[in-house]
Structures are given as C-alpha cells and as structure tokens.
Amino acid sequence: MAVLPILTYPDERLKRFSEPVERFDAELAAFIADLEQTRLAGPGAVGIAAPQVGRAQRIVIVDVSKMKRPVPNHGYLVLINPEITHWEGHEPGREGCLSVPDFTGNVIRATRIHLKAQNPQGETVEFDMEGFEARAVQHEMDHLDGLLFLDRVVSRRTDVFRRKVYEKNS
C-alpha cells in the first residue's frame, strides 16, 4: 500500500469527467487500499475521490464514523459508480478539500439522499443518508464530475439565520 500524491487545483485533471468502473478485480482492490491510505494521511479528511489522485474513475471513499461530535453514519464506505436517486431538503455547511488547501467555504447540499452504488466486489448497495455523511458523499461525487466545492461556494454572510431555523425544526 502507498500514500498517493494528491492533485491540487489548478491541476486540470481535477476538472475532468470520470468514467464508470467496469472491472472489479484485484487491481481495483489494490487501488482502493492506496486511496484509503491517502485519505487517512490527509489532515482530517472524511472522504476522497479517485480523481483527486489522478485516476479518472467513479470511485469514492467516505467515512464519517470517527467524528469528535458523532453524526449518523454507515461507517467506512467504498462507493463505486455511485448515483443519487433521491434528494430532500437543503442546508448550508462548511467544506474544505484536500485538493484546495487553506480555504474553506459554505456550500448548500441536500440534507437527505438515497444513494445507489456498487461495492468493490461489484455488488449493488443502497443507503439512506443524512446530514454530514450525505454532505461528504455529495462533495466526493462532485469530484467525479469535475466539480470542486469552489464551484458551489456561497457567501459566509448569506446564511446567518438559516442554521438556527434548522435547529429549531429538528
């Protein structure tokens, strides 16, 4: 296993569209192991996508199970060819990216999603997700379409009271 170099913006490979995975073999498994090593080496990263290490394939890893303030989660997830089939609600939240050092911004994401993907064995898996985990998946899936959170960032001044309203309702 190896920690792979992370591409940082403005590397144009981050702006490419990634292709679906078709072969679920030992090479894929080895790459996933490297990708996870790379995520763990990144400071505080809860997710990573294959294009961030220069592989233009639809592979992401998300794991929000180790948060200081625990959030609803499905543990360590390898999502291959992921697709969101249902969105619900939206809320702003702060995001940063291994590929965009020293900057964070507020991004509006769906609060709840239904997700279909394949696991490393090629089997279909489905999840209902919410909140922070759903945010992480949406951020990583953007990488597969050549999008960065910078493409979606909203002003810090615009969400002054939205969170409070959300808290009251939840």
Partner: peptide
C-alpha cells in the same frame, strides 16, 4: 443569540 458548531467537512 444562537451558537452553532462548525464542523468542516474535508474531502
């Protein structure tokens, strides 16, 4: 006054 933690999602 409202106080909201900011948990930055890095990925």
């Amino acid at each position: 006054v409202s106080v909201t933690p900011i948990d930055t999602m890095v990925g």
